Simulated assay, not measured.
Amino acid sequence: MQKRDILIGLVVVIVWGLNFIAIKVGLRDIPPLLLVALRFVLTCFPVIFFLPRPPISWAWLLALSLSINVGQFSLLFIGMKVGMPAGLASLVLQSQAFFTLLIGVAWLGEQWRWNHLAGLFLAGSGMTIIGSQQGGEMTAAGFGLVIAAAACWGAGNVIMRRATVGIPAFPILSLIVWMGVAAILPLMVLSLWLEGYDAWVAAWHTAGWASLGALIYLALFATIIGYGLWGKLLSRYPAAVVSPFALLVPVVGLTSSVLLLGETVSFWQGVGALLIMIGLVVHVLGANWKVGKKRHENSS
């Protein structure tokens, strides 16, 4: 990769890592489901009028929106509201990689590799350790909801693979924005049903500049700028080259949550976090190590 593109990748990592700080700040005054809905309102308008609809069917677009935008983000935001620290949430959410694999194997008949099994074992061990450390800033409900959010994200990833089979490449930002439009109405209905109109009124009167800034950050930086830059990298390089940058997102999330929010990580939570990170690295990069080893043996 060129130095400029490496810098772009690092910018995206920082933007997405700080995304979890913005969520925590926004949740102080705005109910979770309403915050998700408002995020996509600001994300999609007026940008939607300048981006063509991606060349996939409405059925697939709705399926993607319900799994990722409604399912993932609703469960993530609610989980962080009821007791999941921002730093640990940024890490646990990355278990989507393993849910993507499990669902892909079951639905699309994808094949396991040694690094998938090893990574799943390591990350699963880390999840078990973190999940057993209840109390303090993390609750069982918060942890479970973020795991469920990761599962929805994994399902959405597999749906995206299925939906884009045989379709020419198109801008990822276009897909993100149109998925956002499809999510607004379901999220508004869910918010009114579960959180109530009174919660909307209370948010209107209590939300300050910090909450507004968090909302703008989620819509503009984490979504429009983040996915826009990520899409540019994917258009220039293979996914295998770009995707490892995502491994740095929880590093930024954990570090920034400690520095900016004063969150703490217990010894055993730290052990679990380390196992998850190692598992993710093995899962994403392990196949390349094996290939590299074979090349070295052949050259010698």
Rank of each mutant, 00 (worst) to 15 (best):
L117E: 08
L34S: 02
E297M: 14
T264V: 13
L233M: 06
G262P: 06
W60N: 04
G180A: 09
I225H: 10
V241H: 06
W60K: 00
G166M: 12
V13F: 11
W209A: 12
P55F: 13
G262C: 14
I130K: 02
R295E: 12
V251F: 13
L259G: 03
W58D: 05
F245N: 01
G180Y: 02
A202H: 15
G124Q: 13
Q269E: 11
A37G: 13
L66V: 03
V258Q: 13
P55A: 09
N69I: 07
A163I: 01
G126T: 09
L190E: 11
L190P: 11
P85L: 08
L38S: 10
T206V: 10
G136K: 05
S299H: 14
V284T: 12
P186C: 01
G228N: 05
K294N: 14
W209E: 10
P52H: 00
G196F: 09
Q96D: 11
L259F: 12
S132Y: 02
G126S: 09
Y237S: 07
V181C: 04
W16Q: 08
A273M: 10
W153N: 06
K232Y: 08
P52C: 07
G272L: 12
V282N: 15
Y237I: 04
A118K: 02
V201P: 05
K81E: 02
I8M: 03
T264Q: 15
V181T: 02
K3S: 12
V15M: 08
L260R: 06
V271K: 12
K24W: 03
M127E: 04
G272Q: 13
P244E: 03
G142D: 08
A118Y: 04
Y237P: 02
T264E: 15
R162N: 13
P31M: 06
G270A: 08
R39Q: 02
P186V: 00
M188H: 10
V146P: 05
I21V: 14
V265M: 13
T223L: 06
A222F: 01
V36K: 09
G136R: 10
G17L: 06
I176R: 05
L117R: 14
V177H: 02
I276H: 04
S67T: 11
L88A: 07
G71A: 00
S266L: 10
V105P: 03
W153K: 00
A202E: 15
A140R: 13
A202F: 14
L76N: 00
W16G: 09
S174N: 14
V241P: 03
E110F: 05
P85E: 05
Y217H: 06
V281N: 10
W204K: 04
V201R: 15
W289H: 14
L145R: 08
D5G: 00
I159M: 06
G228H: 04
S300N: 15
T206F: 07
P250L: 11
G17S: 06
V11G: 03
S132P: 07
T43L: 12
T164H: 06
I225M: 11
L27F: 04
W58C: 00
N69D: 12
L120W: 09
G213Q: 11
Q133A: 11
A155P: 02
L88F: 14
L7Y: 11
L218W: 04
A203L: 12
G144W: 10
A273N: 10
